[in-house]
């Protein structure tokens, strides 16, 4: 199991051929109180870089892009009723969706923990 990060402040946790995706603590702080999350339907085929989910605060909306190509196998339906989970536990209960993928090599360009920490620090 390993976790990688995109420069769009998403994390993807890899377990076998399934990745769980959410946004980072830094991202939820920037957004403020999350009020709405739209997650993709299970079974949807997505391509790396495709916009697949939306997260909204009162004053901002952000698209969530698929960090890897594959099929959505699970979505966090609980976020519909408790979008605040994204603020409270961005890397836990606040996960968005899971993708079953076939080409793990697509993850090669992503950051690991140390690289992402450095990236966030560079943003000031």
């Amino acid at each position: 199991m390993s976790t990688k990060y995109t420069n769009e402040h998403e994390w993807i946790r890899i377990e076998g051929d399934v990745g769980t995706i959410g946004i980072t603590s830094y991202a939820q702080e920037q957004l403020g109180d999350v009020v709405f999350v739209e997650v993709p339907a299970v079974g949807r085929k997505v391509a790396k870089g495709e916009s697949v989910a939306v997260v909204e605060s009162v004053k901002a909306a952000s698209d969530i892009y698929a960090p890897i190509t594959g099929e959505v196998v699970e979505s966090n339906a609980a976020l519909a009723d408790s979008p605040g989970d994204v603020n409270a536990e961005p890397t836990g209960k606040g996960w968005f969706f899971k993708i079953k993928f076939s080409n793990k090599a697509e993850l090669d360009g992503l950051m690991d923990d140390a690289a992402y920490d450095a990236f966030v620090k560079s943003l000031g």
């Binding site: 009162v58 004053k59 901002a60 909306a61």
Partner: peptide, 12 residues
């Protein structure tokens, strides 16, 4: 629900 609107979502 202002995030639907142009002053936040702009081209979307």
């Amino acid at each position: 629900l202002s995030t639907r609107e142009q002053h936040i979502r702009r081209e979307k």
